[in-house]
Design a protein around this nucleic acid. Sequence first.
DNA 1: CTGTTAGCGCTTTCAC
DNA 2: GTGAAAGCGCTAACAG
Lengths: 336, 336
Amino acid sequence: MQKSQVTIKQIAQELGVSISTVSRALQNHPRIGLRTKEQVFAVAKKLNYVPNPAAILLKKNRTSTIGVVLPQLAEEFFSQAITGIEDVISEKGYNVVISQSRDSLERENRAIKSFISSRVDGVIASISAETTQYYQFRELENYGVPIVFFDRVPKDVRVNKVRGNIVEAAYESIAFLEARGVRRIAILNGPASLEICDERLMGYWNALKQLGLPVVQQYIKSTDLSREDTSKKIDELLAMEEPPEAVLCFNDYVALYAMQQCKQRGIVPNKDILFVSFANLPITAYLDNPPLASVEQFAYQMGEKAAQLLLQIIDAPDDSVLEPQDIVIDTKLVVH
Amino acid sequence: MQKSQVTIKQIAQELGVSISTVSRALQNHPRIGLRTKEQVFAVAKKLNYVPNPAAILLKKNRTSTIGVVLPQLAEEFFSQAITGIEDVISEKGYNVVISQSRDSLERENRAIKSFISSRVDGVIASISAETTQYYQFRELENYGVPIVFFDRVPKDVRVNKVRGNIVEAAYESIAFLEARGVRRIAILNGPASLEICDERLMGYWNALKQLGLPVVQQYIKSTDLSREDTSKKIDELLAMEEPPEAVLCFNDYVALYAMQQCKQRGIVPNKDILFVSFANLPITAYLDNPPLASVEQFAYQMGEKAAQLLLQIIDAPDDSVLEPQDIVIDTKLVVH
DNA sequence: CTGTTAGCGCTTTCAC
DNA sequence: GTGAAAGCGCTAACAG
């Protein structure tokens, strides 16, 4: 059944030339006769020749594949980002292998290991909620594999990253609430290991101070993104003597969990307590009572940018020392 | 920066043995000294040896990767299925490359082409809404690449497939509605090229007849799954002199589109007109007014089964002629 | 049990 | 312009 693979050798035989000639013709080598080239292409087509990537790889030591690790595809933010990555990368003839960490450090590590053994040319990553140190990614660096982080970028290290302008987005969200007369605003943030959480907090702080809103320490909560923990934290907020009038959430999922918990407690979300969040996921369009507003983070574009940056690094001459780049993408508060 | 790759040759030198000995040791070849083997492993570890997959591949002519084409990862059904596939496949040391057709025939073809040139060992597919013929997949067969379809399987061809028991699920859904006293039931089906649509229709028909419900030709509609077309078709149903009391939808997305359209027309879904659908997506848990009931299709398990079947075919001896398998997974109607 | 040898399919000097 | 030949890292007969 297995159609025996056509090789350049067979093409060479068919034409009575050497395999080097065929190889050169196929690569559009400059020093080759136009006639020969055309003939080679003709025969290659006739025989249905498909180059064997393994052989090329073995020779060139490049796999033309890049690895992507991200928390989970089921989150629309990430599946949109992947689409952006794929569109850029496949246009350049690269392949993508995707691995989901499902917010587990161990799975993330396994993915990195497998990227190393499959010799990917580069990695794009959005770190798991459990990832607190950069250590594991160093391993990739040791093998000379370039990495670009997006959205969930690690803290305190100089790395290539593509991220939304979260500080500003958080500020804007608070300003939006303040304009509606809200004063007591809480934040339900994500794991402290993520830089985007610091930024969210910073934007929140700045806004509170500049707009003269009350800064209450207990209004600042963070969740590990699970439904349980999120429910617990919103409960704590609701149980306060003076509960917040609004909550800025890490993302739409956190907002939805929190809102459901409110309902359970007989509190009407976006009426008794307002919700604003991040991500602006398409699924919110199906909701009768979505978060009041959500920050659009342009996942697709973020994926595109990350892929472009990575390819740029891969294609850079070996001796060039590149400064890690930090690309910031503008966000937009979308009022529902 | 690029750490020069460690090869078995270096391990051999370090130990003063031949490379074949190293190769055999690493593969746990039976005829090798325990002592030597241990030493080889020790040095391999010390040197941080990682086998070069390209070389192995070139030799063995197997890539240890399988390709997956499916409509879109953003649909939870598919991202769940992928997770099932990944879990099975990665346990056996295989890699997965994923390609989204986004319901476009052209993209699906491109994916297949790329699978051929990257020499995947097998393919798992869920066909696009535009795919009406099996033709393109024949190409894979020509190259001896085994294929397993899941959920969206092609019609009229003998192929390996894993699918839900849609006929029965559709029957059950109608019975559920009938039990609630509903008599006029419409169906908003998917593209006729999909076998699962035929099955849905068959279950619907059987149920109507056996339960003595009216069979109305205009109650049978199909959509190309887009929001626009779905809105149009539900509008047609609503505009009838005697509109249906309930609608059985292709999946949750179609149901949600249809329900939103109803709202636009001032008709309250699940009160004025009932909705039952397929997929039972987690997102429906966030809805205040989800479809009345939805058929759980166990996407994760479907992915697992498809992967297991594919691996089984790949591992089968070349001379064994396998009958195409048709694995049916039981579904379950979940009332919300 | 271990070493020698011949390739897998392709690229790439080095000659002519 | 084209051919001969070496070799990428590894496996698998074939000999000991």
